[in-house]
Each structure stands twice: as structure tokens, then as C-alpha cells.
Design a protein around this nucleic acid. Structure first.
Lengths: 334, 334
DNA sequence: CAAGCCACCTGTATCGTTACAGATTTTGGC
DNA sequence: GCCAAAATCTGTAACGATACAGGTGGCTTG
């Protein structure tokens, strides 16, 4: 019985059209060595002609390969818009491959291990990308233990070697201090990431190294971090500016945080560039347009997405993890 | 042969454990009417106990149901961050179902029909969500013709009934004009969406109705639209402000556009609230923090994501399209 | 008590693909 | 020419699920 011409073509369709066996067609399309060159050519031609795509469910059922990369996203952090460019970067890479991108969400209020366990237990993907990486990240430990391919946005501190892409937050904070000191600022305040995340340490250590090397002092600012609401950050900043030892320089670990700090400074009746200078990490340029006085160092999330997608695929293909660790560096805007 | 206890459990595992047939287990888990109540209970218990999830590839191969919703994203538009909250909204809904969210990207430089054709031809998803909807949108026509479930962010003008969620841009522009006139502004400029998109018409007609009803006049501003770069928009705005008939009121169809307009106004040496008032659509609150003088009306993209996800699922389940059309309204910030 | 009906359960075939173990034909060596 | 070794090709089974067409046993019904 000839396969219906209206249905999506399968190996059977091509087998019928070429007069070959289904197995032969399958192996021809895989360029297997035991198939004749002319046969392969013929099969490829017919396959292209009828617009054949392998059925993903068939492949997945038989081989276990899902051809899916899962991006695990916290529903809370993300609406700030940071991951949007990351999704774009990942998509750019996956578009050139067979992989699809699946978004696996979780709520920060629930266990961050849940989505990872879900993917591992159900075999929902061939590889995973996670962010909000912690020094002793249990997700990383779990995936390493199961030997499951993944990449992290951010590093860990467990002596486990795994693929990552990270922004050099140590250098960012160090350079930020330098730039502030160059502008004559000496009393510097840092709006840091939540202490649970690895890059908190990086940013703090760059900050402190900068203070030492360039001779500035830290103004404590520990009541809020980048996970807090902009309203809370602004209020804390306003209070800090009105305290006796108010800072004359500020560093913000994100563009959103910087906006809140600027609002706090101005609510205290002070003025950027005149009373305070600020260096901020920035991923898009809205801040730049409205407060060009803020010095911004760009973190390229799109690049991060590209690097992570490449790393995870390479890991799936068996490349060793140590070759799949990349770092990117702050770039001064303008 | 008992199924290996290390592997993921399948129907076979449960069948072995309960002493039932595979078919019975399958039907019991589906709550089929021809299975005894006690049996169902027993099967459900064992299934929960061993942590059974149906194998997606098996279901998909046998039934054709993918349990996937595809969000089709333009790689260019999106890094402004608009779709990030939309992804969150979609995820919130899908998390309560069996559906996975797959991001299917395309480049605005290529044919927007490509990703739709891909999903249709490969059966990659059970339903699709698209944005950047046009009055005669060929993607909508194609999916309607193939009777494929989808939802659009934005309406069409083809006399075809399909699920959509839209923001009432007509009302937005109308209200915006009113608010500007209330502040004594009479010469109003509109930064509109690209003319190819449906909501361009909506926004323009609300704008013009507002001008008539409230007695204001339009200042032409047709060289740029919201798809242009912020730099181009700013330059165009600066030029407009220096022309003899400069506007004293402005309406921006997006928060990003508003930032560029503000920069243009200020580059021309003018001042918000004093020389010009502005009403902008806004999806996050960065603008609000740095230029509180700008009046912002919120468009809730997260809600849009939720509504669209619900609509597509309902459509898949056979609900009629006309019941799946929703509109949301501008909300004044503060 | 046979027939019919219900309530429950189950075997078989199938979706599209690939691993595996042959089968068939060609080629080459002597 | 004959046999072994390549070179090509192919059928079967299996991945996990479900549609479909039967089974089986008990109970009512006339």
C-alpha cells in the first residue's frame, strides 16, 4: 500500500518512492558507510523533494534523544527583562541545529531543584541551562552526579568542573571603583547581588580589591540587594544619602538597580555627577539615554545565551567540560 | 520479565506491579468508564508511588498530540524586553497543565511565515502564539485554512474569527490625547507603531478621534516609528522640537520609544512638563522612576501571556474561537 | 436454563524510527 | 570457474502509548 501523498512524508514514503527498504533509507540519510554512494544521493534527492523531516517523536521514542534544550527560568527574576536577550542568543545558536528550546519555569518560592529533577526524571531534554548559580549549587551537584549535560550562567565553588559562561563581576567591580576614584570619589557604596549567588562573592571581592588598590573606603549598604524591589532599594539609598557619612560614589550590579539608586539620590535632593558618581552594569541602554551621567559597563546577555547554547550542545556531543568554560568582560559604553 | 526497577517506570511497570494488563493501566489512569473504581484507585496509587509520568514521545507518536505550545518570536523586536513578561504569563498557565512551551524564533529579515509553516509541516506543536499581527496577516490565514489552533497578540482585519488578546490601543491614544489637552496641550505628536501592524490603525484612529473630540491638532511625525532605532527616534524628535510648529504634547506607543523622545526633547534644550507633556505606554516602571513627569498608561504583557495561553489551550480543546477574544485596557500608573 | 446484557478487563496492531542480525549480490583472488 | 570476502541492502523487533475489537464471568430475564 503506497503511503498517502497528503500525509507528512516518512521513511516509508521515501522507501516506497525509491523502491528501497525503510532501513536503507534511514541509513542512507545518516550517511552510513554500508550504503552505496549513488543510493545515498538518490535518497537525499527524493527526501528533499518531498520535504522529509524526521519525526521527532519517532526518533525520541527509539533513541531517547529529545533534541531539546531546556532553559530553566525563575518566573520572578526574569520580568526585569534580563533573560529576554539571553533567549535570543540561545535561539540564534539552536536555529542552526535540530534542537528546540523549551522554557521550564519555576517559582523562586518553590524549590529550584524541582525543575531540574523534572527534566532529569522525565528525560524532557538532552541538556539544560540554568542561571542564578550558587557556590554550592545543588542543581549542579545533581546533574553532575547523573552525568547530565548542562551549562550554568555563573560559576560554582565545589571543585566540580562543568560548562559555564560568566561575566567577570570581579573585574567589573574593580574597574568601577577605579573609575569612581579617578573622578575623585572616595566613599563608595555597592548595591550587590543577593548573597546566596556566586557572583555576589566575585563582585564583593573585586570591590574590596579596588578599594585597597585605589585607596577608597566602603560605605555599608547591606539592607538591600538586587533581588529587592526597586522601591525598597530607592528608599534604602535615599536613607544612605541622608546619613552623616553619605557616599560620593556608587556601584550597581544591574541597570534596574541603578535606576532605583538614581531615584534615591534625587529624592535626597542630590545630583548625579555633582554630588555622586555612579557606575552601573547595564544590558540595554535605557539608563544611558535618561541619565548619561551614569557610567555604564555592558554585560552582554545575548552573548551569554550564545555561549551557553554552544557549550551545552558541545557537552551533549561529548566534549570535555573544562573546554566549555567562558568568561566575558565588562565593556565601557560609548 | 519484570521491568527493571532502575529505569523510568512505564505502563508496563505498573501493569507488572498491579498484575493488570497494560491496556487496563492506561485506561485506568485516563479514568475510562469501563474500569472498576477499585482498580482505578489501586492503579493511581501505584502510579503515584513509583512516580509515573507518561512518556511524551510515546503519546506523541501514537496520538499525534505533542503537548507543546509554540511561541513564535521575532529575534529582533524582542530584546527590548517586551516579550519577557509575556513568556512569564504563558508559563504561569502552562505550568498547571501538561503543556511545554517551545520558543520558535525567526528573523524579521526572513519570511514571518517560515516558522508557522515549520510548525504546521512538522507538527511541532498543538498550538501557536504569534505577535506583531497585521490586518491581513498571512500567518493567520494559513493557520485558519489548516484549522490549526492559535492565538494572536493583536487583532486582524480579514473577517476571520480567531482567538486573540489585544490591548485597546484606540482607547490608549484617545485617553492620551484627553490627558494632554487637560494639561493645556493642543499640538500633539504621536510616535506610532510600524504601519504594517494592525495596532497602528487602532492607535491612529484613537488619536484622531481624540483630536476631534478634545479640539487638538496633530503634529506630523511620520519619518520614524517604534521599529526604528532609539537613536533615529531621538534625532527625529529633536528635529521636530526645533521646527517652527513644534509640538507641546507627545504620545509614545511604547516605553522604549518614550525614552528616546525624552532624550530628543532634552537635546533640543526643552523640558518635560514645562514645555511639553508626554503620555506613554509602559510595561515596566523604569521610565516612571527617572522621568515621573511622563504620564504612563500600563500595558500588561504578563496578562497578555496568560490570556493567550488560556485561549490557545481552550481552542485546542475545541472551544469556539469567538469566545476566546479578549481585550485589556490602559491603566494609569500610580 | 439458555440468552442476553453488563461490568470489567486484555491482546493486537500501530504510530516512525533505528539497532541488530542477517540476506543478497558483486568482486576479486588464484 | 569457484569460493571467500566485501559491498550493499533489508526484515524484525523494540521504544511507550492508545484505539479497537474482543474476551470473561456474573447476573438478570423470560
Amino acid at each position: 500500500m503506497p503511503p498517502s501523498p497528503n500525509e507528512r512524508p516518512t521513511l516509508k514514503t521515501i522507501a516506497f518512492m525509491t523502491g528501497l527498504g525503510i532501513t536503507t533509507v534511514s541509513r542512507a540519510l545518516k550517511d552510513a558507510p554500508d550504503i552505496g554512494a549513488e543510493t545515498k544521493e538518490r535518497v537525499r534527492l527524493v527526501a528533499a523533494q518531498v520535504g522529509y523531516y524526521p519525526n521527532r517523536a519517532g526518533v525520541r521514542l527509539r533513541t531517547g534523544k529529545t533534541n531539546v534544550i531546556s532553559l530553566i527560568l525563575s518566573l520572578e527574576e526574569e520580568f526585569i527583562g534580563l533573560t529576554s536577550p539571553m533567549v535570543v542568543g540561545i535561539s540564534e545558536i539552536l536555529a542552526t541545529t535540530q534542537y528546540h528550546l523549551v522554557i521550564t519555569p519555576y517559582s523562586t518560592r518553590s524549590d529550584p531543584l524541582d525543575p531540574v529533577r523534572y527534566v532529569l526524571d522525565t528525560g524532557a531534554a538532552d541538556g539544560v541551562i540554568i542561571s542564578r548559580t550558587e557556590p554550592k549549587d545543588p542543581r549542579v551537584a545533581l546533574m553532575m552526579e547523573r552525568n547530565f549535560p548542562f551549562g550554568t550562567h555563573g560559576r560554582t565553588e565545589m571543585g566540580l568542573v562543568h560548562p559555564y559562561h560568566d561575566f567577570d563581576n570581579e573585574r567589573f567591580a574593580y574597574d568601577a571603583v577605579r573609575m569612581l576614584v579617578e573622578r575623585g570619589r572616595r566613599r563608595i557604596m555597592l548595591l550587590h547581588p543577593p548573597p546566596s549567588l556566586t557572583y555576589h562573592m566575585h563582585m564583593r571581592s573585586g570591590f574590596e580589591r579596588g578599594l585597597r588598590d585605589f585607596g577608597a573606603t566602603a560605605v555599608p549598604f547591606n539592607k538591600v540587594d538586587l533581588d529587592d524591589s526597586l522601591a525598597d532599594i530607592r528608599a534604602a539609598c535615599e536613607a544612605a544619602m541622608q546619613a552623616p557619612d553619605a557616599p560620593d560614589g556608587m556601584i550597581s550590579g544591574s541597570g534596574g538597580g541603578a535606576v532605583a539608586l538614581v531615584a534615591g539620590i534625587e529624592a535626597a535632593g542630590l545630583k548625579l555627577a555633582r554630588d555622586v558618581d555612579m557606575v552601573s552594569k547595564q544590558s540595554n541602554d535605557l539608563l544611558q539615554w535618561l541619565r548619561p551621567e551614569v557610567i555604564t559597563l555592558r554585560e552582554d546577555f545575548r552573548l551569554a545565551g550564545r555561549e551557553l547554547a554552544k557549550a551545552v550542545i558541545a557537552r551533549i556531543e561529548g566534549q570535555s567540560a573544562i573546554e566549555l568554560q567562558t568568561l566575558s568582560f565588562p565593556v565601557l559604553q560609548n
